[in-house]
Write a protein that binds this DNA or RNA. Structure first.
Lengths: 109, 109
DNA sequence: CAGGATCCAAAAGGATACTG
DNA sequence: CAGTATCCTTTTGGATCCTG
């Protein structure tokens, strides 16, 4: 519940799940997520790392620093739960036909 | 996320799912949940009702008032998500053998 | 680029007392 | 019994500026 209850967490996980390139940079996430402040983003990333859903890889050999975040196995597995929640929402709350496609163009899950 | 993110919500849903008698009274829930204050419990119940996961039946014919809460179909369906989350937790976080029984004696799911 | 530090506003939750 | 009302503390999140 610490994971799922907090703002931005789900969006971060989904962002790391989307697209071809699975590793995302700090500022890349920041941009994609719209208006997360660096403080909050940094907090969420730390928590997710602590809980083992994501990992961080830092390349400190070159400057400027380059750090990349990516989903772990448990993180990928957690995406399934997010998908279940979405299905529940589609079934009982929002009857949005567009979202029922294999890969929803709106939320990419 | 409004549903799942807030304190006590999950516990309320599980409480309404447990046991033979599926309808639970306000003070019954309050007692079972330990130390929820009536204010918070009342807030959560309202939200859950508004979101359609539970329903309320009031018997105003007799005094003192008697109100009963119970899960709707979508509420019951949501229990499955809670179970998925629990499974995820068991798999990746807490390897608690006792919880893997068909009906866990600790959390009743 | 990847954050950390500081300060502030808002939301959430809890304690307690009271009421139809 | 089933809540409301009031007040207060804690937790979050956001804004903004700064740095190695």
């Amino acid at each position: 519940m610490n994971i799922i209850g907090k703002r931005w967490t789900i969006h971060i996980l989904l962002e790391l799940y989307k697209g071809e390139k699975k590793e995302k940079r700090f500022n890349e996430l920041k941009r994609k997520l719209g208006d997360v402040t660096p403080k909050v983003l940094s907090e969420r990333l730390e928590e997710l790392e602590k809980d083992g859903l994501i990992e961080k890889r830092v390349d400190s050999s070159i400057l400027p620093l380059k750090s990349e975040y990516f989903l772990t196995e448990s993180g990928k597995d957690f995406i399934k739960i997010i998908q279940e929640i979405k299905k529940w929402g589609l079934k009982w709350k929002f009857q949005k036909k567009e979202c029922e496609k294999a890969l929803c163009m709106y939320c990419d899950i």
